[in-house]
């Protein structure tokens, strides 16, 4: 058992939307320096778990707890979770016309820096600060002058997400299907960025369907989610087994009926 500090501790977490329970008792412990992967079918509750951790107001926590560095964050609004160091990389980053990407990045970076008791960056020093992070994701600086995510391709949006991650320097980064919509080259760049940012003091939670992301970012732990719960946890070999055998055997071993009629987000 690792002795590094626990960053995220999820205990018997239950959450619902419109009175429908989607998370049905999730347990997960993430320590500093760890990379975890959460896999599962569509509708198993993976994305919901990521949004609940980040504080999406659509979801109501009906039981259990989410503790970040020992603090229960269930009641915190999303902006405070972000400032504390929780980062959600979106599966579908929204496009916001008229909001300058550069200004958005500066405002969000300064919000996080303020929480870290660091000096806020003015326009000029921010652009300097930004430069090396841009190189990390090999992003064309012209994207900074555009509206936030507007007209970006799928790959450009994901690079922009990792750029935000690099600027915000989160303690726990949750990447929700970051590999979706990426071609091989973009996947390689995004994965290199995530690997570069992973360190002994932070942790990463990858939510994915596919082994191909885990070929580029090697997790220490792989969790299989179904019906709103984590049914099985293993090492990287578990992802390979899922790739080979699918999910039915996990359901069978856990005594859960496959293809539950429940509709899960």
């Amino acid at each position: 058992m690792s002795e590094s500090p626990v960053l995220l501790e999820i205990t018997d977490l239950r959450a619902s939307v419109a009175d429908q329970e989607i998370l049905c008792g999730v347990n997960l412990t993430v320590r500093a320096g760890e990379i975890h992967a959460v896999m599962g079918r569509n509708g198993s509750g993976k994305s919901t778990l990521s949004k609940v951790i980040a504080g999406h107001p659509t979801y109501t926590i009906t039981g259990g707890s989410v503790r970040f560095r020992g603090q229960d964050i269930a009641e915190l609004p999303p902006e405070e979770r972000s400032r504390a160091g929780v980062f959600l990389g979106f599966q579908y980053p929204v496009e916001i016309p008229g909001v300058s990407n550069l200004e958005f990045l500066r405002v969000s970076t300064n919000a996080r820096r303020q929480a870290q008791e660091l000096e806020e960056l003015d326009t000029f020093s921010f652009e300097e600060h930004l430069q090396q992070r841009l190189e990390l994701v090999q992003m064309d600086p012209s994207f900074l002058e555009r509206s936030l995510n507007e007209g970006f391709s799928g790959g450009e949006k994901k690079r922009n997400e990792i750029l935000q991650m690099a600027l915000l320097e989160p303690v726990v980064a949750i990447l929700d299907e970051t590999d979706s919509g990426l071609d091989i080259d973009a996947l390689r760049i995004v994965a290199a960025g995530v690997n570069h940012l992973a360190g002994p003091d932070n942790a990463t939670l990858l939510i994915t369907h596919y082994q191909r992301l885990l070929d580029a970012i090697t997790p220490q732990f792989v969790h299989v989610m179904a019906h709103g719960r984590i049914l099985r946890t293993g090492g990287p070999e578990l992802a390979l087994e899922l790739e080979r055998r699918g999910y039915d055997w996990v359901d069978a071993e856990a005594g859960v009926t496959s293809r539950s009629p429940e509709v899960l987000a």
């Binding site: 999303p78 902006e79 972000s82 979106f90 916001i96 969000s108 919000a111 915000l168």
Partner: peptide, 13 residues
Amino acid sequence: DEELFYLRSRGID
């Protein structure tokens, strides 16, 4: 709502 959440998830109140 999704635009608001996106911005708030980046520390913007």
